[in-house]
Simulated scan of single mutants.
Amino acid sequence: MNRIDRLTAILTHLQSKRTVRASELAARFEVSLRTIYRDVRSLEESGVPVIGEAGQGYSLVEGYRLPPIMFSREEALAMLVAEKLMEKALGEQTSKHFNNALIKIKAVLKSTEKDLLVEVQDTIKVLKSSSSPNMNQSSKAFQFMLQAISDKNVVATTYVTFDPEQITERELEPVGMFHSYEQWYLMAFCRMRRDYRTFRLDRFSKFRFTDISYSTAKHPSLQSYLDKVAGEQKLHQIVLEVPDGSLKYLANSKYNNGFVSEEKVGERTVMTFMNSSIEGFVRWVISLGDMVVIKKPTILRVRLSELLNEIKQMQE
């Protein structure tokens, strides 16, 4: 990226947030802090009202805006792909808001880019995933919790736990949401348990706003919470041996089960996983049938034998 393009991109980035740190700009554009300082000084000299606050970062004077910036051909195509993905990933309700935002963005495209999007529109498809039956419920909860986080509003919910399956009434202070293992999760402070908990969005059967507000200042950030959970979680190292002909059947699902690495040994591949749930992992292994051999840990082999016996007894 040449300097002129970088200066324009820095100005666009400054408009995207209230305050932007120099280190953030340096990381994004892969340049030194000294280069960022020089670039910002150049923007100031050209008349851009940049405000620099020690220890805070850079911001633009309130009300200053650039005229619409044109997108490149590659950026326009990337936007189309993102639109296709979001239609399925977000569900109907949130996808509608996303598409409305994209229409406004597309309005500033050049005629050639608009024609290009029309031409390739039907050449890209995103098929529904196996989790699509829960998508509508997740989407409604996603939009609701997003508003709760924005308004800092305590929500009253009815939640169905997984194991054992129980219906509980809870008042939550939503902190953040994340996507993992093909599901959306909410991290929130549970007033009933007086502690932070993680909830699957599709397991909320009811949710409503209360008249109670809360302060986010007393809560940890979503990232710090996830880091803490990862540090406390007991992970099991699991090693499987897979014949080469069976590797293709694990290609997608391995990443949802803690895949770490693999090593070719003759006509077989040794795969290493790190997973916190022996029970969940062994049920995935059962679905693979005779395509894998458990090398370790012993506890996984023992639980597999127990589960197979339980299945056999159920069929007798």
Rank of each mutant, 00 (worst) to 15 (best):
M314C: 05
G63C: 02
D5T: 10
N256E: 13
H236Y: 11
Y37E: 12
V282H: 07
F204Q: 04
K264P: 00
E87S: 08
K17R: 14
S111V: 05
I278S: 01
L304D: 05
V229T: 10
A22V: 12
S131D: 10
N257G: 00
L146G: 14
K296S: 14
L80V: 08
L80S: 10
R268N: 11
T157W: 05
R283P: 01
R194K: 15
S246Q: 11
G57Y: 07
G91I: 05
T94E: 11
Q233D: 04
L172G: 00
M135P: 00
T19N: 12
I149S: 07
L85K: 08
A251Y: 13
F29P: 07
E119A: 01
F162M: 09
L226Y: 03
F189T: 03
L146C: 02
S205E: 11
A76I: 12
Y255R: 01
S131P: 00
E62R: 14
S213V: 04
K96H: 12
Q233G: 01
Q223P: 00
W184H: 08
T12R: 14
Q223Y: 04
T210M: 12
Q143C: 06
S72E: 15
L80Q: 13
A107S: 14
E53G: 04
E263H: 13
L304W: 10
P49K: 03
V50M: 06
Y214F: 15
T298D: 07
M86W: 01
W284V: 01
D195N: 15
E262P: 07
S23C: 07
Y255T: 01
Q93H: 07
S138F: 00
V40D: 03
L102E: 03
A22H: 10
N2Y: 11
F29W: 11
A101D: 14
E279V: 12
T298N: 06
V108F: 11
D163R: 08
E45A: 14
S42G: 09
R268L: 01
I10L: 04
L235S: 02
L172N: 04
Y159D: 01
H97N: 02
S42E: 15
I103E: 13
S180K: 11
L80H: 15
N99M: 09
R28D: 03
E92F: 11
T161N: 12
E75V: 04
K206V: 01
